[in-house]
Structures are given as C-alpha cells and as structure tokens.
C-alpha cells in the first residue's frame, strides 16, 4: 500500500490540531503505520498552524514533504496559499470558505483577493467547502471541523466504521449527536462534489 500524505492547515483556535488528532486516531484504527506531527509557533491563538499525517507502508518520518501531499485540507483561505506548495501536482486542496484577517503589526494590508485563481493556476484541484454555512444550518457554528473532516473522509482510504468509532470516543457525550450529524453532512457534501468533479472531467 502506498503512503498517503495529508496536510491540515489553518489558524490557531480553529480546531486544526484537534481535527488532526481525530484524523490520526482514525488512521491508527486501521493502519499499522501512522505518523503525525504538527508545526506551530508560539502563539496561543491566531497563528498559522499545520498538522502532517502519513499512513501506509514504510512510514518512518512524520513530516510530509513539499510537493508530496495527496490532499490539503485548509481551514482558512489564506492558509491554503501558505501551504499550497506541499501538494503534489494535480493534488487536491479542500478549502474552508472562511477568511480570518491576520492580526497585523505593521502597515495595514487588506485581506488578499484572487486566492482560488492563483492556486488553480498552479495546477492544483480546488474545492471550496461552505462548512461555516452548513454548521450554522445545523445550529452549532463550532461543528465546522467535523464537516470538513467528513468531506476529507470521502478522499481517504479509511472506513466509515473507524471514523464513527473515533468520533464517538473523542467527542463529549452532549456534543456527540450534532458532531456525528456534521460529519455525515460533510460526507454527503464531499460525495456530491466528487461526483460533480468527475462529471466535469
């Protein structure tokens, strides 16, 4: 089995590290070799955060190489650009449709435009995921992470059973139902997007 390389990125406080942990636990349910690591600076929140996950055969290093990620899940638009070069040619970036203005210490810069055009110009496949809107529809804005993981799960060789087991284990009882629902919403969203992408060729 070839090695699968996944990258999750976003802004500190968005739940990237927790999502990374859930993903790694799911991989650990089914795969013999799993390595995960994260890189973040000193900021408590608001800093750029990235989580690497690798599973398959012959996995020693926890670090995903640049140009080798099969898939990048970006919890925020600008962060998709920051880590875009980790994705292999023709690889997929799932982008959460969220903009978080960086806290700025110098001269004020507006939030950049043209992110999607820039990334697709680099030969990367993109999918914009309206996780915040979907989460709002479910009545809890904080379940965005699980929606995003649901979309991601469509593209990974990890069984629904493993996802279900880990979510049940990792999410507190009182939030379990809405999170399971969020994950399923993500799965359905991911499936319809994947089918549409295939139809478009």
């Amino acid at each position: 089995m070839p090695v699968t390389n996944v990258l999750l990125c976003g802004v500190g406080g968005q739940g990237v590290l927790l999502a990374g942990e859930v993903l790694a636990l799911v991989a650990a349910e089914e795969k013999a070799e799993v390595k995960q690591t994260e890189v973040h600076g000193v900021a408590q929140r608001g800093g750029s955060v990235v989580s690497h996950l690798r599973f398959g055969e012959g996995v020693y290093s926890p670090i995903v190489r640049t140009g080798e990620a099969d898939i990048l899940l970006a919890f925020e638009r600008l962060e998709a650009v920051r880590y875009g070069h980790y994705v292999k040619r023709g690889g997929l970036i799932l982008i959460n449709d969220v903009e978080i203005m960086p806290g700025q210490i110098g001269e004020y810069k507006p939030y950049p435009t043209g992110i999607m055009e820039f990334l697709s110009g680099k030969g990367l496949r993109l999918q914009l995921i309206p996780a915040a809107a979907e989460a709002k529809a479910l009545g809890n804005i904080r379940v965005s992470s699980l929606i995003l993981l649901g979309v991601l799960s469509v593209y990974l060789d990890l069984s629904p059973k493993a996802w279900d087991a880990v979510i049940r284990r990792r999410i507190p009882e009182r939030l379990l139902e809405v999170n399971l629902k969020a994950f399923q919403t993500g799965v359905e969203l991911g499936r319809s997007r994947a089918e549409a992408a295939v139809a478009e060729g």
């Binding site: 900021a43 608001g46 800093g47 600008l78 806290g103 810069k109 950049p112 992110i115």
Partner: peptide, 8 residues
C-alpha cells in the same frame, strides 16, 4: 502571492 504573516 502577497501573503500576510500571522505574527504571534
């Protein structure tokens, strides 16, 4: 790309 940093 004109990436804005996210300083701590």
């Amino acid at each position: 790309f004109d990436l804005i940093a996210r300083p701590p």
